[in-house]
Simulated scan of single mutants.
Amino acid sequence: MRRLDDPATATHVLDDAGLRTLYSYPDDLTRPWIRINFVSSLDGAVAVEGRSGALGSPSDRRVFGLLRELADVVLVGAGTARAEGYGGARTSEVTRQRRVAAGLSPVPPIAVVTSSGNLDPGLRLFTDTTVPTVVFTSRRAPESALTALRDAGADVRVIADRDIDGATLTAAVADAGWTRVLCEGGPSLFGRLIVDGVVDELCLTWAPVLAAGDAGRIATAPTAVVTGMRPAHIVADDDGTVLTRWIRVAAASDDR
């Protein structure tokens, strides 16, 4: 992979250390920094036959793993967790050592966002994990469902009366002591976070394919909210995959 936006390094092949530098979180964070990661086809499809994995490439998977390595926590909406067959948090021993050396926990937990609590306790999220999966939910979730999730090993946290908005979710993440936040979607959760003004960064990969089909876009919401973004870097792989990082305008100085 090579940078396209920096002529001085355009011929340099990026190794893992270089990528870690490019994707590092801001230093000395005092609040959660919400980073979103998505992959899309060139014609805007967020998935093929309901799953984003078909759009992945070796370089996208490489950065996907790197972003998880750098994060305190991985946020995901319940619908995406079900559709993508999410498992719990796992890392290699080498990755654990790098995380600990960087002052992070050995393994970043998966935190699922679901106001309804509608999650099957038999999902791999709870049966195939090295640390408990966190469930952010609301008081409208049936207590029986939450009890079943707790019995399955989930760390259930009721953070809202009904719907979970961006401010409430950010506050819950801050209460947990997490500042380096990676959100992997899905589109509804991403859209809600945009509308609520809490997205700091988007890492967007364009897969070098056309997909057609009826797949939606990477963010959906009932209301349109325009959020200014500036490019941080543009990286390309030899197979045509383009990986970009975008920072919300003034996000670095925003102490919301």
Rank of each mutant, 00 (worst) to 15 (best):
P121L: 06
S41N: 07
A101W: 12
P106K: 09
L66G: 02
L29C: 08
S59Y: 06
L123F: 08
A81R: 00
W246N: 04
V134D: 05
A221R: 05
T220G: 03
A78D: 06
A111I: 05
E93H: 07
D255R: 15
R124C: 04
R192W: 00
I159E: 10
S92I: 08
L189Y: 06
G56M: 14
T21K: 11
S41G: 13
V13A: 15
V235K: 00
T223D: 07
P187T: 08
G88S: 08
T137Y: 02
A236H: 07
R31S: 11
R35P: 01
V249G: 00
A211P: 01
S188N: 07
G85H: 10
E184D: 12
A211W: 13
A111Y: 01
A160E: 08
A212F: 11
P208A: 12
D27C: 02
P109M: 05
T91M: 14
P58F: 01
T227Y: 06
R20L: 11
D175R: 09
T179C: 11
A111Q: 00
G228N: 09
V76K: 00
P58E: 01
A251Q: 14
A232C: 01
V199L: 06
E49R: 15
R256S: 14
L75D: 07
T137V: 06
P7S: 11
G166M: 12
F126L: 15
D200C: 06
A219M: 10
W178N: 11
V107W: 03
L146K: 03
A167T: 13
L104N: 05
A224R: 12
F64Q: 05
G85S: 10
T147L: 13
P106G: 10
A221C: 07
D16W: 08
V181R: 02
L14V: 12
D60M: 03
I164Q: 01
A154E: 00
P208L: 12
T179Q: 13
G186P: 02
S57K: 00
S253N: 11
T127Y: 04
R248N: 05
A171D: 15
A172R: 06
V131M: 04
R2F: 15
R150G: 01
R150C: 01
D237G: 07
L243M: 14
L123M: 15
S188V: 08
F136M: 07
A89W: 11
T220L: 10
V113I: 05
T129Q: 12
D16C: 06
F38T: 05
C183V: 13
P108F: 10
V209W: 09
P32L: 14
A8H: 13
